[in-house]
Each structure stands twice: as C-alpha cells, then as structure tokens.
Amino acid sequence: MELDSKFALVTGGGSGLGRAVCLRLAELGAGVAVGYLSRSEVAEKTAEEIRAFGGTAQAVKIDVRDYAEVTEAVQGLVREHKSIDILVNNAGICTASTIVSTESTDGWNDVIQTNLVGAYNCIKACALPMMLQRSGAIVNVSSILGLVGKGGLSAYCASKAGLSGLTASLAAEFAMHGVRVNAVAPGLSGGTGMIQEFPQDQLEIIVNERIPLQRPAEPEEIAEAVVFLAREGSSYMTGQTMVVDGGLTSVIRGMAKTR
C-alpha cells in the first residue's frame, strides 16, 4: 500500500475528523499514533478499530500545550517506530466569547494555546527527526473561520488564521530539508468544533442558503483532503491552505459590500 513503512502522529485523533484521518491513513498502510488529552477510551477505541483490520496503531497521551510532554512523546514514538513521517495537527477547541465581557482571559488564551501554540509545539518536536531523514509531511487543520471570521469567536478565528500563517512560513523554512507543510481549512463539518457554536436556526440558514452544496461535510470528506496532503500525490504542494467548505467562502466573498 502507498503508505507502507510510514508512521503518522495525529493529535486529537480519537473522534470526529481526527478519527477519520487515523482510519484513512491506516487503510493506506501507515502506522498511526492516535493522540489524545483526556479521553483515553475514545482514542484506544480508534486504535482498536485500526488493529482489527490488520493495521498498526496505538493511543498516545499528549497535552499539546506542554512542549516538554510533546517532546517526550515524540521521542518515544521515534525510538519505537524509527521515524515520524506524517504529523497531523488536529487537536483543537472552540470557545465562544466576546472581547468586551466580564469573563477572564483564560478561555481566550486556552484556545490560542491549544490550537496555535499546540501545533507549533508538535511541529517543533517532529521537525528535527523529519529533517534528519530529509522527508516528512505536516498537515495543520485550520478553518474557514481563519479566513472570514465570526463575531464572538475571536480566539478561534485568530488561532486558525495563525495556523495558515505558520503553515506558509514553515513551508519556506523546511523546504530545503525535504519537509512539506500544508493546511486544510474545513467549513461546517461534523468533525470540527466550530459547528457546535452555531445556534440551530443560524446553522439551517447557512446550510440551506449559503453553502452551494447545501449540507455540512462528513468527517471522512475532510479527512480525504488531509490525507491527500500527506501523500506523494501532493509532493509539489507546500505552504498551501486548502479550503474544503462546499463553496461557502466563495459565496461569502461574493456577498462582501463594495464602496
């Protein structure tokens, strides 16, 4: 199979989009580390699914906000599997809040630490092993809200916009070492936290009136884009943020007011 002998780390790999990515990578022959923070039983269930059809998988606890913990986990995986060939930064949270509020800044900071700093920590830990082997594919899971924004979700939007910037910058930095860095920006999908922050009435309007394909994505559809960027078929792509949103952002841009 195409990804035989490759090993992948997928953060937030136990459920939703992360689970779909883990399963698809394993179907193509890759060994998979299913990263999790607190839901060990969910991550282990995904790993068991992979092992059930003959794949190689293990659940690995990683708090992506803690660089020391990330480094220790990555070093352990490299010792065991000889390499990390694919890193998918999928771990993320989405917390609604407004800037002018009585709430503390803790929630805002936690989103940034998880979604953006967490991805940086994982990339920093995996970059040297990838550079030494002169190959590797890093895929960051961004969001269309890093491109268009939404009121009340400033931390999430900022973190996802930051991921796209990080992707472009590190792609240029890593290219000479044979390591590619890309991102996927999903729209409304059952595999992302963003959809949970929309009231049902707003969600129905977006799906029925704004998304040309008139439905949210299935996690497996987003996973196909993520895995494509990890495969040799995308070997000439780096520094890109691939939008997978059913046409939503094209419609939003078309609705922008002109002066």
Rank of each mutant, 00 (worst) to 15 (best):
172 A>N: 10
158 A>P: 14
19 R>Q: 15
108 W>G: 03
201 D>I: 13
256 A>T: 10
141 V>Y: 09
6 K>T: 01
55 G>E: 10
169 S>T: 15
174 F>R: 00
196 Q>R: 13
178 G>I: 01
96 A>G: 00
189 S>L: 06
142 S>T: 00
67 Y>E: 14
168 A>F: 09
67 Y>Q: 13
21 V>W: 10
154 S>F: 03
216 P>L: 05
255 M>V: 01
48 E>F: 00
91 A>F: 09
234 S>H: 01
112 I>K: 05
77 L>E: 03
218 E>Y: 01
166 L>N: 03
198 F>D: 11
209 E>F: 05
200 Q>C: 04
257 K>M: 14
47 A>K: 12
89 N>C: 15
32 V>E: 04
85 D>K: 04
105 T>I: 11
39 R>P: 00
212 P>V: 10
247 G>C: 12
40 S>N: 00
197 E>Q: 14
206 I>F: 13
175 A>E: 00
86 I>R: 01
79 R>G: 08
211 I>Q: 08
187 G>I: 02
182 N>Y: 11
148 V>A: 11
46 T>K: 12
45 K>M: 13
101 S>F: 02
155 A>G: 02
70 V>E: 05
137 A>V: 06
230 A>D: 03
73 A>H: 07
182 N>H: 11
4 D>A: 08
79 R>I: 00
66 D>G: 04
73 A>M: 08
15 S>W: 11
39 R>I: 01
61 K>D: 06
11 T>P: 14
220 E>L: 02
214 Q>Y: 10
235 S>D: 11
124 K>S: 06
50 I>M: 08
16 G>I: 12
134 R>M: 13
251 V>S: 09
85 D>T: 02
126 C>M: 05
100 V>R: 10
205 I>V: 09
89 N>V: 09
45 K>Y: 08
23 L>I: 15
29 G>L: 01
103 E>Y: 05
239 G>C: 05
230 A>H: 05
60 V>C: 15
250 S>T: 14
235 S>Q: 05
20 A>E: 04
60 V>G: 13
121 N>R: 05
178 G>M: 03
171 A>T: 12
129 P>L: 15
108 W>Q: 01
153 L>E: 05
250 S>L: 15
23 L>H: 06
160 K>N: 12
137 A>K: 09
208 N>F: 01
139 V>D: 03
103 E>S: 14
32 V>T: 10
231 R>G: 04
57 A>I: 11
85 D>M: 07
9 L>Q: 10
136 G>W: 11
123 I>L: 12
77 L>D: 02
29 G>N: 02
31 G>F: 13
187 G>D: 07
118 G>C: 07
4 D>V: 02
154 S>E: 06
43 A>R: 03
85 D>P: 08
25 L>D: 12
253 R>V: 12
102 T>P: 00
64 V>H: 09
109 N>V: 04
47 A>V: 15
64 V>M: 14
50 I>F: 07
196 Q>D: 14
2 E>H: 12
33 A>H: 07
45 K>E: 15
91 A>D: 08
217 A>V: 01
3 L>F: 02
109 N>C: 08
167 T>K: 10
8 A>N: 03
23 L>N: 06
42 V>P: 06
100 V>W: 09
203 L>F: 15
132 L>C: 14
170 L>I: 15
222 I>G: 07
154 S>D: 06
122 C>I: 06
156 Y>S: 12
212 P>R: 04
47 A>Q: 15
99 I>Y: 05
177 H>Y: 10
72 E>P: 04
84 I>K: 09
174 F>I: 06
190 G>W: 11
158 A>F: 12
124 K>A: 09
